[in-house]
């Protein structure tokens, strides 16, 4: 389009403004597309999950809706341990054992004082 042509500073400014506008337009469009994809996929998986729940009435609620891999099952007793420390310990156990957190059950984490 402009190959081999001389440009004034006004032209350069116009091109720059058009360029940054183009980049923003493109990425804003993508952002909208991502939102739409997420909504459509979310609606689909919701429909799937609800049909699974009605089909399989013998399963408990916790089995019908799978937990994300970053969330553990059940409840845990924390004895002298902060929630942050417990989260780190559980993540390490999951990582070292190669078992996702949603397949691990922690009963309690207790601080052992050094004598």
């Amino acid at each position: 389009m402009l190959a081999g042509k001389d440009l004034s500073m006004i032209d350069a400014l116009t091109i720059s403004l058009t360029g940054i506008l183009m980049v923003f337009t493109e990425l804003v469009l993508l952002a909208f597309a991502v939102v739409i994809i997420s909504k459509v996929v979310g609606a689909f998986s919701k429909g799937k999950n609800s049909s699974k729940t009605t089909d399989n009435t013998t399963n408990s609620k916790s089995d019908a809706v799978p937990l994300p891999e970053t969330q553990s099952r059940g409840e845990i007793d924390l004895i002298d341990v902060s929630q942050e420390d417990a989260a780190v310990i559980m993540a390490i156990v999951s990582n070292k054992s190669g078992i996702p957190l949603n397949r691990l059950v922690f009963n309690s984490i207790k601080l052992l004082e050094e004598e």
Partner: peptide, 24 residues
């Protein structure tokens, strides 16, 4: 977080500044 795309766009500001500075 789709709003990340806006930050990715804003950081291209440097490209057009350098373009103008090069011509200048």
């Amino acid at each position: 977080r789709p709003s990340s795309l806006l930050l990715g766009a804003a950081a291209q500001f440097g490209i057009f500044m350098a373009f103008m500075a090069s011509l200048a």
